[in-house]
C-alpha cells in the first residue's frame, strides 16, 4: 500500500545517511528479516551467487542484494560505482515495499511498469516468490530484532505516527508504519 511519508523518510535516509551508518542499518535490516524468516534462504538456495542491483527512484545511491553461496544468506549493501550485478530492479520505494511485504502482486506491479527489470530474470522471480511466501512485515521484524530496545522504539514510532497522521491525513499511513501481526489485505 502507498505510504508517502514512509517512502519520503526512507528515501531521505537512503540518500543522506553517511555510508557506514547506512550500511550498519542495511545489515541490521537484512539480519532482522532473515532471523524472522529462516525459510527464505532455503527457497533462494538454488540461486546462490546471484547479485541483484536495486535502483530506487529519487535515491542517489544504488544497492546490491547478494545471495551468498557459502552461508546461504542474503546480504544487502551499498553498491560500489560500476559494480557488477546479474540483475537489476528499478522502481519506486513504494513498489519495492509492496514487493517486499507481499501486499501487491509482483506480476501486477510489473504489468503496470511500477517495477522494471533487467538481467537475470530468474533470480529476481525467485526472490519475488520467496519473499511472497514470508509475509514479511519489515517494521515488526525490526522491532523483534531490537530486543530490549523494542519498547522505546515502538513508543517513538507511535508518537511519530500520531504526528505524521496529523500532517498527512493519509489513512494508509497508520498501517504502513505501525507494526502489525499480520499484513493487512487490500
Amino acid at each position: 500500500m502507498d505510504s508517502p511519508l514512509r517512502d519520503a523518510l526512507f528515501g531521505f535516509a537512503l540518500s543522506a545517511l553517511p555510508s557506514p551508518l547506512l550500511q550498519f542499518g542495511l545489515d541490521f535490516a537484512a539480519a532482522a528479516v532473515q532471523e524472522q524468516h529462516p525459510s527464505l534462504g532455503e527457497r533462494l538456495r538454488p540461486f546462490s551467487g546471484a547479485r541483484i542491483a536495486i535502483d530506487l527512484e529519487g535515491v542517489s545511491r544504488s544497492f546490491l542484494l547478494a545471495f551468498s553461496e557459502r552461508s546461504g544468506r542474503v546480504s544487502l549493501c551499498l553498491a560500489e560505482e560500476g559494480e557488477k550485478a546479474s540483475a537489476r530492479i528499478t522502481g519506486s520505494l513504494s513498489a519495492l515495499f509492496a514487493l517486499l511485504e507481499g501486499n501487491a502482486d509482483g506480476d501486477a506491479l510489473f504489468f503496470a511498469r511500477d517495477l522494471a527489470l533487467s538481467g537475470d530474470t530468474e533470480a529476481v522471480v525467485a526472490l519475488r516468490n520467496a519473499l511472497d511466501n514470508e509475509e514479511i512485515d519489515l517494521f515488526a521484524d525490526l522491532f523483534a530484532a531490537l530486543g530490549p530496545f523494542a519498547l522505546p522504539a515502538r513508543a517513538a514510532t507511535i508518537a511519530f505516527r500520531a504526528l505524521s497522521a496529523l500532517a498527512e491525513r493519509a489513512p494508509s499511513f497508520e498501517k504502513a508504519v505501525f507494526p502489525r501481526p499480520f499484513p493487512a489485505r487490500r
Binding site: 507481499g102 501486499n103 501487491a104 502482486d105 509482483g106 506480476d107 501486477a108 519475488r128 516468490n129 511472497d132 511466501n133 509475509e135 489485505r185 487490500r186
Partner: peptide
C-alpha cells in the same frame, strides 16, 4: 500458482 498471495486472496 506463480502469482503472489495478494493476487490469490483478492
Amino acid at each position: 500458482r506463480q502469482r503472489g498471495r495478494a493476487y490469490v486472496a483478492e
